[in-house]
């Protein structure tokens, strides 16, 4: 915590300065509220509209977590099978990269046509945005295992599953966590996009309604909440990483 205060005060100070500057400019130039609301107005909206916004926030968080879990599972399963079965890697890896070239926004209407407006198309959207960073990071981690370690394990008679669970998996964990961090923030974005497909509540719905009625202050509330939620997810993953990978904290001189 002390560390956070020591390191964190600079960006926080800059942020507060920016808000003050924003407030002053809005006040001086008399920009209409629907074009650019002042920060104090957004703050007011957060406080006064909290009870009506709260269910949307919960709904989006829930769907983001669910999508993230499914996406992580898919990402890891894909990475492990690609790693363990070379011919799958050779034939599937290029397709995986292609899958990332299709914009989610374009794919979304298709998913609605195929799967309706339920939970499934939403989870698919989040999974599609989440799994790729994890797969790439995990594959990278598996590849980084030093030859000398692998050679020792083989000479000592390790089987394929022993080699994987005792060497490759733990060795790849730091890389996997890097992927998880990226995916965690993507999952919130994916959740909001998936709600644009059609949902009863959620930040995505809230945002669409707000922008169509020119409630720009509400749009900013939505944006702010997405940022805070992403940050929160990120923090959870960092905490999990600290817990699981204590061995790398001291510089990680691997030999």
């Amino acid at each position: 915590m002390n560390f956070l205060i020591r390191k964190g005060w600079r960006p926080i100070a800059v942020l507060i300065l920016l808000f003050i500057l924003w407030e002053i400019i809005v006040k001086i130039t008399k920009v209409p509220d629907w074009l650019l609301p002042a920060p104090t107005m957004i703050l007011n909206e957060i406080i006064s509209g909290w009870t009506s916004f709260y269910p949307d926030l919960v709904s989006t968080s829930k769907i983001a977590v669910e999508g993230f879990l499914v996406g992580t599972t898919v990402g890891l399963v894909v990475a492990v099978s690609l790693h363990l079965v070379p011919w799958i890697r050779d034939s599937v890896y290029p397709l995986l990269i292609l899958s990332q070239n299709v914009p989610i926004i374009v794919l979304a209407p298709l998913l609605v046509i195929w799967f309706g407006f339920g939970l499934l198309p939403k989870i698919i959207v989040i999974t599609l945005t989440c799994f790729f960073p994890i797969t790439v990071a995990a594959l990278d981690g598996f590849k980084q295992v030093p030859y000398s370690h692998k050679h020792y394990m083989l000479m000592a008679g390790a089987g394929k599953s022993q080699l994987f669970w005792k060497l490759e998996w733990p060795y790849a964990l730091p890389s996997i966590f890097s992927g998880l961090k990226i995916s965690a923030t993507y999952s919130v974005m994916g959740a909001v996009i998936s709600e644009w497909l059609g949902a009863e509540k959620g930040i995505g719905v809230y945002m669409t309604l707000a922008s169509s009625s020119f409630r720009t202050d509400k749009v900013f509330v939505a944006i702010l909440s997405i940022m805070v939620l992403s940050l929160l997810f990120f923090a959870v993953i960092v905490a999990a990483e600290k817990y699981f990978i204590r061995w790398q904290s001291k510089g990680g001189n691997v030999e």
């Binding site: 030093p146 000398s148 020792y152 733990p170 790398q248 990680g252 030999e255």
Partner: peptide, 8 residues
């Protein structure tokens, strides 16, 4: 082995 190859 030549290098210790200990698991960190």
């Amino acid at each position: 082995p030549q290098t210790p190859s200990l698991l960190p």
